[in-house]
Design a protein around this nucleic acid. Structure first.
Length: 477
RNA sequence: GGUCCCAUCGUCUAGUGGCCUAGGACGCGGCCCUCUCAAGGCUGCAACACGGGUUCAAAUCCCGUUGGGAUCACCA
């Protein structure tokens, strides 16, 4: 049987990290087995629908290279792939389930979900009086125009057992299950019903979802059973947490995929990082491309306990990805940041060369290059550096020597400039640092800079370099 | 509260009874390299929640305690 997995988000807003990770695992399970990865939109809750949310889902999946084989926009043999377009299917199966004894019609008023005292609420199990209505009577009331829902019927007693790939065997007492609504009064199914019907009809073999669904899985199995269908292989994954107590959620404004991208994280790095949140390959390898992941991933190595999302490690990993980028690509990615901070014309290639190993996220760029536009105001004390044996007095000398030497300089490459200043230091009986350090300070006005004195000179160009040196020297006099 | 699930360095984790005086990675500290800062190399600090068993031997198995999470909607 061909492996088929599905990512079934509901279009309620941004794509958050936990969601994306679930999608990744679905994708990897399918692709590791030469199977199909299906995208299904679960929009049965019309109240929560957010305009544009499906587009974000598409864009995100495409951006990270997780292409789906079937979906709303890619015809397959199991469509439609949007639940709101499948409404008649659910109704048909809901009524069938009633006939089969797995559900019943219910005419009760909607239950209040009072979350006022959710902390110590002692929920009482809902005992549905309609359960005991005869089918004829129920049908008569429906024919009479009464509003109804289809509610699951649970008559079994004892323990429900099922196997989960990550959690192993789980037992839940049938008594603890409630008879939830399957088909709402508006004719739409609830998730509880739609996912079962769709997963079966779409021939899904592996269901990957958050472990909050563990406790309702027996209810789904009961539905499969009533229909005589085979349940899928379950892969429940632990939550992605913000800290030990709270899970990552979009409601709290926690980072979403697009937020991270906007901050200068590379999609490949984000994907790599979340793959490792709760999964490990059993080796020390940490950097994985999507195709490497496809070859290595096995659901059996998924972890059971929740993982805290650690931005520091993601940042490190992003730095690895930036450094591994071909130079041209990095240069291209850096362009927008130059455009937003620089008006002066500088050697941007050299700037990128110097920056590539020094930033971890693209958004670090502006702060790193602030001095390029204008030399920052600084006090002469900045020339003081014990290790470089530099101070304002040394600087005064060094700067005037440097100006003299550089004015004659024609080859404005880093190597040539470094050679010139090194020889200059030797000639004047100074240490290299005694020339280079003051020059770098004069050129930047910063204690630390990406790149050294000569690299900055290359970035700035000859005219600006000499102008800054002269200005700095004048300030010292 | 009932039920289910989870529990190794601050964080992500390796570990499936002896290879563990618990390994790797991030972060943090130090050193080296070095025209500052990065990068790179080396190195240090740092954990089996607790208590009982089982066993010649337990981070690993069992029980309990504690702590955390999930779930109990016409949301998914």
């Amino acid at each position: 049987m061909k492996t088929r997995t599905r990512f079934a988000p509901s279009p309620t807003g941004y794509m958050h990290i936990g969601n994306l990770r679930t999608a990744l695992y679905e994708y990897l399970i399918a692709k590791a087995n030469n199977g199909d990865f299906i995208l299904r939109i679960e929009d049965t809750d019309q109240k929560r629908y957010v305009e544009g949310a499906t587009e974000i889902i598409y864009a995100t999946l495409k951006r990270v290279g997780m292409n789906w084989d079937e979906g709303p926009d890619i015809c397959g043999n199991y469509g439609p792939y949007v639940q709101s377009e499948r409404k008649p299917i659910y109704a048909e199966y809901a009524h069938k389930l009633v006939e089969l004894g797995g559900a019943h019609y219910c005419f009760c008023a909607q239950q209040e979900n009072d979350d006022a005292d959710e902390e110590n609420a002692v929920p009482t199990k809902f005992q549905d009086p309609c359960k005991h209505l005869s089918l004829e009577e129920a049908k008569a009331r429906i024919a009479n125009g009464e509003k109804y829902v289809v509610r699951q019927t649970i008559n079994k007693t004892g323990k429900s057992k099922f196997h989960d790939v990550v959690y192993g065997d789980i037992e839940i007492d049938y008594d603890d299950l409630d008879e939830g609504v399957l088909l709402k009064s508006d004719g739409f199914p609830t998730y509880n019903f739609a996912n079962v019907v769709d997963d079966h009809l779409m021939a899904i073999t592996h269901v990957v979802r958050g472990n909050e669904y563990i406790s309702s899985t027996p209810k789904y199995n009961l539905i499969y059973e009533s229909f005589g269908w085979t349940p899928p292989i379950y892969v429940h994954v632990p939550q992605v947490m913000k800290d030990a107590q709270h899970k990552l959620s979009k409601r709290n404004g926690d980072a979403s995929f697009q937020d991270l991208v906007a901050k200068g994280y590379l999609p490949e790095a984000i994907l790599n990082y979340i793959a490792l949140l709760g999964w490990n390959p059993g080796t020390d390898q940490e950097i994985f491309s999507l195709s490497e992941l496809k070859q290595t991933f096995t659901a059996e190595r998924l972890n059971k306990s929740p993982a805290i999302f650690d931005i520091a490690k993601l940042t490190w990993m992003n730095g690895c990805y930036i450094r591994a980028l071909p130079f041209d690509e990095f240069h291209k990615l850096a362009q927008p940041f130059y455009a937003q901070t620089l008006t002066r014309s500088v050697n941007e290639e050299e700037l990128s060369r110097v920056l590539q190993s020094r930033i971890e996220v693209l958004n670090d760029i502006p702060a790193q290059i602030d001095f390029v536009e204008n030399v920052l105001d600084f006090s002469p004390e900045l020339y003081n550096n014990k290790k470089m044996k530099s101070d304002a007095e040394v600087a005064k000398q060094a700067l005037s020597y440097a100006i003299e030497a550089l004015e004659k300089q024609t080859n404005w490459s880093n190597e040539a400039l470094f050679e010139t200043l090194k020889t200059l230091a030797q000639d004047k009986g100074l240490k290299n640092g005694q020339i280079l350090y003051p020059v770098r300070i004069a050129l930047s006005g910063k204690e630390t800079t990406p790149g050294g004195a000569t690299e900055i000179a290359v970035i700035l160009g000859k005219d600006e370099t000499l102008r800054r040196l002269k200005e700095a020297l004048a300030k010292l006099n």
